[in-house]
């Protein structure tokens, strides 16, 4: 099976993002860029799938300079091929624009791969904008079956069974191929690269394409971000740190009772 995963490069979500006071926009310049966590879960799930059932995993990303090193890291942890799409025009737009471009890029990826994809995966959401729309919109752009928050995929003849995580448990869906799924966190973590894989990935050359190279036409855009603000700050209260834990607890109890919380 040929699997294509679209990966987004995001600011490290362990670091708080604040507004640049001069520009009034989110200041992410100094924050390390990493592969979106849910996209790395998608890669691990796909890598395990092809290890068990055969096939290849391709990762592809739209992104600026530096995105190629993220893609190299992904080659070290299960991806066989990687493509980068880099163009100033790709940096503008909303979720509709991104999904429309990705739908157009599938064809370019297939031409480069020399084979069509049976399954297209995205993370269920990105950790920066957290809008969770792109996978769903991509499925619609391509008129393909869509299942979100998948944590397990099993082959079933010429069909796939996708296990979707829900609030209470799970739902199992059957779909034809190709299909578009978004991936939630399965019950395992993405692998760490071993030295050999790391060395090989470092040498990998990531084919990079502009909008013109990839044959991407102008994408629609509907949503405009009018302004950014920061939410009102909550004031920090009292912090207790006594030498003895018992004293810390005793003091805290006093305050909780005084504040009528307990």
């Amino acid at each position: 099976m040929e699997i294509l995963i679209f990966v987004k490069q995001v600011p490290d979500d362990g670091i708080e993002v604040h507004l640049d006071p001069a520009a009034g926009t989110p200041d992410t310049a100094k924050i390390d860029k990493i592969a979106n966590a849910f996209d790395t879960y998608a890669l691990e799930l796909a890598a395990r799938y092809v290890e068990a059932n055969g096939g290849n995993v391709t990762v592809a990303a739209i992104g600026p300079d530096g995105t190629d090193s993220m893609l190299k890291n992904l080659i070290a942890v299960g991806a066989k091929k990687a493509y980068l799409f880099k163009d100033p025009s790709f940096e503008q737009g909303d979720e509709a624009s991104t999904a429309n471009r990705l739908a157009q890029l599938v064809k370019k990826c297939e031409a480069e791969n020399g084979a069509p994809y049976d399954l297209i995966l995205c993370g269920k959401e990105s950790t920066d904008e957290i809008s969770g729309q792109v996978g769903a919109r991509l499925a619609e752009e391509l008129s393909l079956p869509f299942v979100s928050s998948v944590i397990e995929i099993t082959p079933d003849g010429d069909k796939l069974i996708a296990k979707q995580e829900t609030d209470e448990g799970y739902i199992k869906f059957e779909t034809a191929m190709p299909a578009v799924y978004t991936i939630a966190k399965p019950g395992y973590d993405p692998r760490y690269p071993n030295i050999k894989a790391k060395m090989a990935a470092r040498k990998a050359v990531i084919p990079t394409f502009s909008a013109a190279d990839a044959g991407v036409s102008e994408a629609p855009c509907y949503v405009e971000c009018v302004s950014y603000t920061e939410p009102p700050k909550r004031e920090a209260g009292l912090k207790i740190q006594e030498k003895e834990v018992a004293d810390t607890v005793a003091k805290a109890m006093e305050i909780l009772i005084k504040d009528k919380v307990l």
Partner: peptide, 16 residues
């Protein structure tokens, strides 16, 4: 709507 885990608040318009 909140973004970046809630440290940033966005005001949006949909022109569709």
């Amino acid at each position: 709507r909140p973004a970046f885990g809630g440290t940033v608040i966005e005001k949006m318009k949909n022109h569709g």
